[in-house]
Design a protein around this nucleic acid. Sequence first.
DNA 1: GCATTATTTACAATCGATTGCATTTTTTGT
DNA 2: ACAAAAAATGCAATCGATTGTAAATAATGC
Lengths: 334, 334
Amino acid sequence: MSQIKTMKELADLAGVTTGTVSRALSDSPLISPKTRERLQALAREHGFKPNLLARNLRTQRTGAIGVLIPLGHEKGQHISDPFFITMLGYLADELTERGYDLLLSRVIPEDENWLDQYVGSGKIDGLIIIGQSNQSETLDEVAARYRPMVVWGGHAPGQAHCTVGSDNILGGEMAAQHLIDRGCQRIAFFGDPQALEIAQRLEGCKRALARAGLADKLTVLPAHLVAEAAHPDIAGFLGSVSERPQGIFAASDVIAMSALRALAEYGLAVPGDVKVVGYDGLAIGEQTVPRLTSISQDLRLGATTMVDLLLRRIAGEDAGSVVLDPRLIVRMSS
Amino acid sequence: MSQIKTMKELADLAGVTTGTVSRALSDSPLISPKTRERLQALAREHGFKPNLLARNLRTQRTGAIGVLIPLGHEKGQHISDPFFITMLGYLADELTERGYDLLLSRVIPEDENWLDQYVGSGKIDGLIIIGQSNQSETLDEVAARYRPMVVWGGHAPGQAHCTVGSDNILGGEMAAQHLIDRGCQRIAFFGDPQALEIAQRLEGCKRALARAGLADKLTVLPAHLVAEAAHPDIAGFLGSVSERPQGIFAASDVIAMSALRALAEYGLAVPGDVKVVGYDGLAIGEQTVPRLTSISQDLRLGATTMVDLLLRRIAGEDAGSVVLDPRLIVRMSS
DNA sequence: GCATTATTTACAATCGATTGCATTTTTTGT
DNA sequence: ACAAAAAATGCAATCGATTGTAAATAATGC
């Protein structure tokens, strides 16, 4: 049995034209059930798979969604970052469920118009960007002319691009309030407020502290987001402060894990000596010792929502930003 | 300035034909420097990006490499598994560096000929598969007719598909020998030997134990690969065994992390009461408490090697399997 | 200055499928 | 059995680029 590569070959073999084959294989009602089945059987028998490029060129859709992270302020951050990776996994599940493929490309931050590499190249039907980093202006600018784009991150008033993310201010407030409830007075915030989301979490943290009259007890350590880079930041901090914090609010679970490790190295008990709260609610927090208390963002819901919005925008609808509720997950570290 | 979408438009604007534009933009020597620069400037000015689908259809290459995991024996395993994700990150880095995109699609294990979804659909130039699971036969079969395919995993004699992976038998031997060197007698192996790689690691483990005359001291627990599923397996095991093992060799770092957690819950000190060695050498092992001793597979090198082999196979060369050296990384858990 | 060669550019086929419209075949009504 | 309506198929343009070949223009030699 010769291998059938194109519709033309299959059509010749069956004594019909490619048009008929095309319709038969796509279950068009214009075709008689008899020939439809005959052609489908023939296609199956010869293992014929239509060339998707040709189909896509004709139908003007690719069936692929681009996913990327802009790493503006944090060069060292790798695609293998747990948060990104978790989100990527959910997106992959969600997109494939809906018949889309996921096209992952690395962003070269040096390139001025990095977004245009994707947009308009015809390779993707839409774009999901994970994390704004410090690229909000670029995103706003592109959003003006490219509609099918959804961004994971913080939502700020006046923002032109469509975002999905948790209420970072509320989440920050919840984390700080939890530490306060647990009896902490001196609180340290680990995270670099250059990124919008982290700035918002810090903002919420400050609000809770102010309400409790503890505004002057806050220390902010602009720790890196990458685990390897965060650890020395944190170890250095713990070694140098005169008054050890009673509670640590880490702006991400990855930072929190570095904090747990550094604390263990200093012989400090968690939650006995120091209580720790992370942010993200990653699965990895279940595996730390002690298991990590965290402000959970429902990333699965986040992924679903992003895909939802994106498909609606692809369909021409003008779907707007969504803010999700953060949730406190109390485990063993607080 | 109107938006130029196609070459035809640009050609009309410049008063030439699409052929000329095409050659000008691809720096063909058939074009005069003068018109080349004029057209390139015009293209830049109007932000023209050629449609990649059309190009790909014509040139018969897509510039994308498919990446997938077959999850034959472990349905619950998710794309967000740390090992897969780490490998994915390296692959993404490596592929994009060489100008390829990475197309990630989920595999539906129910579908009989899942591989044909990719192969021959014209969407990808080559395929990288991470982990053989229990699908070795399928892979062999497809490898016979589809050349540009490379698989991460164990290499077995008589295997038709091209693999890259560490020497799992040697790695298993190293892990067990390390535990023996540390004074362990009773050793437990955590991992399900259904998968080829894990079976090989167990084999190496057995060899080392036999050499030390400890062959009868081995217990095998076929723990799941997924962290959430592995934990109950392990906790149950620790709760039920009469003689607690002195050393644990976990077939993956993810399993090892579950073990660390379970041990902590049972009040057992690591490495005091029980010593633990993982496999993979994932970055996450740096963040556990205590930091995890592991048999490291150089995943970055692995990714580079896979891409190398794949591109050579795409070029028609008949590149064969590669076995990498495992390396023992001693941290704090042993 | 004219024939000849070297450069440039235009023309048109091609990649492999989809789809509106024309045409043929089948079915229905009477 | 024949006209009219309905269903099935064929025809050919199309998506947007690439590329071999032919044609037009410019450069060279004598």
